[in-house]
Each structure stands twice: as structure tokens, then as C-alpha cells.
Design a protein around this nucleic acid. Structure first.
Lengths: 197, 197, 197, 197
DNA sequence: AATGAATGAGCATTCATTCAT
DNA sequence: GATGAATGAATGCTCATTCAT
């Protein structure tokens, strides 16, 4: 990794939490230089513009989040276990360096929706990937005889994400953990009673 | 209503959609004067500052949203019917002047969380009121013998809001109606099977 | 004249010499606020952007220059006298608030040619108007029997402007008045011997 | 020519057209690295600063221009022929790699006049050299009995340059070839009727 | 009560230049 | 001798806010 690569990485690392916490419009170049200790020129030497950093920061946050999930999934053999890895990560969101400021998908998605097409696209791609990943696990569960065949895969995945994101966002903003806890409890119940044989 | 009152109302009316659509940071004073045809001086003659307008705009949006719910609830006698009024409003969100830009609670809550304490507070109060309103309906349902006694009121209310907000936000950002549709379908099913006798 | 109008006028008045002297790229917003004592916000409250000021400044300079010519022409009855008014203004360029920094047409035309299409257009329009004005005077002279019919009007006008602009620009840059003096002397001779009967 | 010498030459070669076309202020270091494919460090390794390059670029452009003239003059025996070599080069300016962006003397002279003393000096030196060169040819013509003695050498030289530069600049900026054509036609006529016996 | 005009701090971005490697 | 990376001052411009009228 060359010096440029290292600096880029460093800038993303330091600014990604800012973008997730304060949003794109709420994060200024000065916030970024304060967080990194670098100069504006240096940021512009390594990125095309603020957008470029924000886009990279979103990817960084998502990768970190996915990494947390993957780590847990690695030790899970069952499809149910793999699904529950998502639940586990969000349930302990307070300790996650990413989720403690809220899920990047909904944070970015709600801000960028009517203001920043590129970021919106990114958030939607991440959402679609997540949906696909859940769907694949459910299909796998069906194939291995672990899950019932008569459950609609796509619909279950949609419901699962809605529960996680809704609960997560509401608990984050209200400080009332019940939204997330009850959503995740309900989701686990659904996995056990609707999905598993 | 004096002239001042009327101008205030007018400003809020015209800017409330902006704030819900583009967020607090994304809405500039110039956006506001463009939308109203008034001058900046006029805005500042009627409000203390941008915050003051944003706060009022949030209330305006919420009242409009609550109004839509109330209208439907007015013709519903049963507790289940009253609960389903919320579902009905969100299901037809595309036609709601407020919800077409997303639910103000989650829009405001996610943006303001780490940037604007007063707005965050407003969003949380609205959320708490909503939660209380749902809880009261459930209690009423229980008292009238319509709902089962052994359902946890608070938890059901939390789950209900998570499903609505999660589904709503994800469908809004992705353009995929499935998130909302499946959440609301599931919620209706829960009301029928878990709540109703 | 409202206050806005007066401020616009004031800004143009103070910055027009800067633009003529230092060029478009060479004149910064800070130069402009230094020259006016106003703030950047004030400049942007009265003009769309730097271009807008530069364009207005060019017009201001040209109008001033044309005014000087008109003043002399007013007391001239003959076509020859009217043509010589142009010569007179450029001959005393050192004392002209505009020409002391060079003729705006050639200053702007040479800088903007490959860098600023709008300014280039302005300079060319001014040049075309000047050409038309000279042509009209020559035609008038012909009609009144003052000038010979067998002189090509358009060609004489072109030659006249080339002599004035060439001499003016070279004397300005070199500090050697001979370029301008000899050009204008030659031009006067041409008017007397080629044009006049 | 060592490597350093070759790189210097290469940079000048590639940037000289930029400086003539876009001017000193209009040509950025980035324009220069784009044009050369080299790095900023490399430019600064071979030149003191941007000024240093611009100065060298001006010389390069002038030498190229003078080279074109010399080439034609080489096959001219008469003084009149040598004078007309200048005319010939400017008349075919569109095909000259230098003149197609305008004459460096007037381009540089008008921009640098009030902003860049060193460049202004360069342009003036070039102008003075040109004047001297024309004067020498006229003197030669007189000595050889080709030109009349009673013509003022210095004044004719000044007039000649004014006609060429005025016509050239105006045609360049306006796209109307008449300014240059008529100036040069007139100049040739002057050489034939005033200068030649 | 409302306006038009101004403010000045802040914005994202580009500049010429430097310097360790 | 050349590069890649960094600097910091300056660029044009927008922001929320104020205030005389």
C-alpha cells in the first residue's frame, strides 16, 4: 500500500463516523480536516471532492458492518444461525463503532433521498445486496430441509429488514431500546415459528 | 387570526414540505423565500430564526398526518379499526402530501439525532405521543373485551411503530413498495391473530 | 434610482477600472471588495457572480469611452470632424480615465478570446458597433458630397480601427508614444487625402 | 544537450502554446502538467517557478515566429522583399502554430502591462527588437538606393508594426479577416508608394 | 409588519509552491 | 533528476442573520 493509498484509507477511516453521525450536508471540509489533522489541500489531493470522500466513507461503514456480520456467521452452520447473525449485530449496536451512530443504510437513505442521488444509489445498492444475502440464506435453508418450502423468500427478507431497520432507527433516535428489542425478539420468533420446520 | 398569525401560518404551510423532503440542513433560507415568495426579512419578522420555522414546520407536518389518521378513525368504532387507521394512512402514503416525502418522525429523527437537539426532541415527543395513542387504543380494546388481556400493550405498540416506520422508510428510499406492503400486511395479521379474540 | 441601483452603479464604477487594468482573471473578488469597501456578500447581493460584474464593467467602460467621443462629435458638423473625434480621444488617451489603462476592446478581446466566451462576445459587439458607427459617418460624408464616392466604406473603417487599436495598444505597453502618434497622424492624413474631396 | 536541458526544452515546447492562448493568469500549473504529462515536481525541478516557465515560453514563441520570418527573408534579396516577409507571415497567421493563437507580443503585452512587470519587459524587448530589425532593413534599402531617403525610418517602422499588430489582433478576436487583410494591403501599398523609389 | 440591502463567517475548491524520498 | 504527497493561502460563492427605513 503506497503512501497515497494509506492516506486515503486514513481519511476515510477518520471521516466515515462523521458522515454516518452528522450526515453528508452536516459534515464540512473543516470537520474533516479537524478529524484527520490534515489540510484541505491534502484531502483534495487524495479525493476528487467531498462527494468522493462521502461515497467512500459509506462503503467503508458498510464493509465494517458486513464484516461484523460475517464474523458471527462464520461460526454458524445453520441457516437460522446465519440469519440470527444479523439480529445479533444490531442487538448489540451500542457497542458497534458503526451502528452506535445508527445504521448507514437508513441514515444515508433518508438524508440523500431527495438531495444526493449518488449517495441514495449507494444506500439502495447496499440495501439490495443485504436483501439478496438474506434471500440466499433462506433458499439455502429450504434446500437443506431446515426451512419450510411454503414461505415466500423475498417477502420474508423484506419483512426482516423492515423490522431491523425500523426498530434500530427508532431506538437510536428515542433512546428507548424497546423498539429495537421488541422488533428483534419478534423477528427471532418468526424465524423459529414461520421459517424453521 | 391577525395578519401576523396568517403570515406565520402561510410560511409554515409552504416550507413544511421542504423541511420534510430536504431536511433541516438541506433547506436554505433562500429555498424558503423561493417557496413563499416572501423576503428573508419577512421570515425573520415572523420567526426567531430558521430553527423556529423548522420546529413549527415539523408540528405542522405531524398535525396534518394525525389529521389524516383521525379522519379515518372517526368512522371506526372498533379498537382494531382504529389501529388499522394508521396502517391505512401509511399504505396510501404516496397520495399523502406529507408521507409522499417520507414520515417526518423518521426523516427528522435520523437527521437531527446528532446535529439538532431541539428537532430531535420534537421528533421524539411525536413518537412518544403516537406510542401513547396506540397504547390507549389497545387498552380500550382490552377493556371492551375486543382484545386479549395477555398481550403486552407497550410492546405491541413498539412493534407496530417499528413495522410501520421501517417499512415506510425502506420503501421510500428504495422505491420498492414491498418493504412497506409486507410490513403492513404482517402487522394487520398480528392485529387479527394476536390482538383480537 | 433605488439603493440597490445605486450600489450596483457604485460597484461597477469602482471595479470597472480594475477589470480594464488587470483583466478578468487578474481581478479577484477581494480586489473588488478592497476597491469598493463593501463585502463579498454585498457584491453577490447585487450581481449574480463575478462574470456579471465584469460584463457590466465592460459596458460601463465602453459607455464612458463612447461618451467622450460623442461629446467632441457634438460640436463637429463635418463628417471628417466626426471621424477625427475618435482620433482626438485616443490621442489624449493618457488623460482618459478609461484609455489610460488601454482600450477595453483590445484589452478584453485579447484576454477573453480563448478563455471567456461571454466577454469575448461583448468586446466583439462593441467592435462591431464602432465599425458601424464609422461606416455611417463615412456614408454620410459621401452623401453630403464631403467624401469621395470611390472609397470603400467598410474597408476604410476596418483600416481606421486597426490603426487606432494597434497604435494605442503598442504605445500603452511600450510607453513609446510614437506608435500611437504615427498611427493617428497617418490616419488623419488618409482622411484628408483619400476620403475628403 | 543533457537530460535536464532536454526536459526544460520539452516543457517549454508543450506549454508555450498554452501561455500564448490562455495568458499567464489563465494557464495553471495543472494545465502545464496536463500538457506535458509531467509532474509539478518535475516542472519545479527544471524551472524556478511559473514565471520562469512563462518567460521562457514567451522567448520560445518569439523565436519560432522570428524563425518563420527569417526563412522567408532568406530567399529575398531586396529590402522591400524582406519587409514583406513580415507581412507574409502574419497574412498566413491561421497556419502558423504561434500566430493562430494571436501574436505573443500583443497577447503578452496587453495582459502583463499592469500585472506582470517581467513579462511586460520581455514583450517590450521583443517589440523593440522587431522595430530595430525593420529600421535596419529600411536603412539598408536607403543605402542600396532601393528606398527614398526622405522617409523617416523610425516612424515608418512604428506605423508598420501598428498596422500589423492592430489588424492581427482585431481579426483574431472578431473572426473577421478584413481587419488584418486591409491593414496588410495598405501596408504593402505604403511600401510600394512611399518607401520604394 | 415588512422590505431591501448589507454583513461576515463559513462553504467547497484550486492555486502555486515545497520537500522528503 | 524526478516523483508523489503535502501545504496553506487564496479563490469564487452561499449561508443564516441583522437592521435602517
Amino acid at each position: 500500500m503506497g503512501k497515497a493509498e494509506r492516506t486515503k484509507e486514513f481519511i476515510i477511516q477518520k471521516t466515515a463516523p462523521l458522515f454516518n453521525k452528522k450526515g453528508y450536508a452536516g459534515t464540512s471540509l473543516t470537520d474533516m480536516t479537524d478529524a484527520t489533522g490534515l489540510t484541505k489541500g491534502s484531502v483534495y489531493g487524495n479525493f476528487e471532492d467531498k462527494d468522493d470522500v462521502a461515497l467512500a466513507a459509506f462503503d467503508y461503514n458498510m464493509n465494517k458492518l458486513i464484516g461484523q456480520v460475517r464474523e458471527i456467521q462464520a461460526s454458524e452452520r445453520s441457516a437460522a444461525g446465519k440469519l440470527k447473525a444479523f439480529i445479533s449485530v444490531y442487538r448489540n449496536g451500542a457497542e458497534s463503532p458503526v451502528l452506535q451512530d445508527g445504521c448507514p443504510i437508513i441514515n444515508t437513505g433518508t438524508e440523500a433521498d431527495d438531495t444526493h442521488p449518488q449517495l441514495k444509489e449507494k444506500a439502495n445498492e447496499a440495501l439490495a445486496r443485504w436483501h439478496k444475502s438474506i434471500s440466499a440464506i433462506i433458499q439455502q435453508g429450504k434446500m437443506h430441509g431446515e426451512f419450510r418450502e411454503n414461505v415466500n423468500t423475498v417477502e420474508f427478507a423484506s419483512l426482516m429488514i423492515s423490522l431491523i431497520e425500523g426498530g434500530s432507527a427508532l431506538s437510536k433516535m428515542s433512546g428507548d431500546g424497546n423498539y429495537l428489542t421488541k422488533s428483534l425478539d419478534h423477528l427471532e420468533m418468526l424465524i423459529s415459528t414461520q421459517l424453521m420446520k
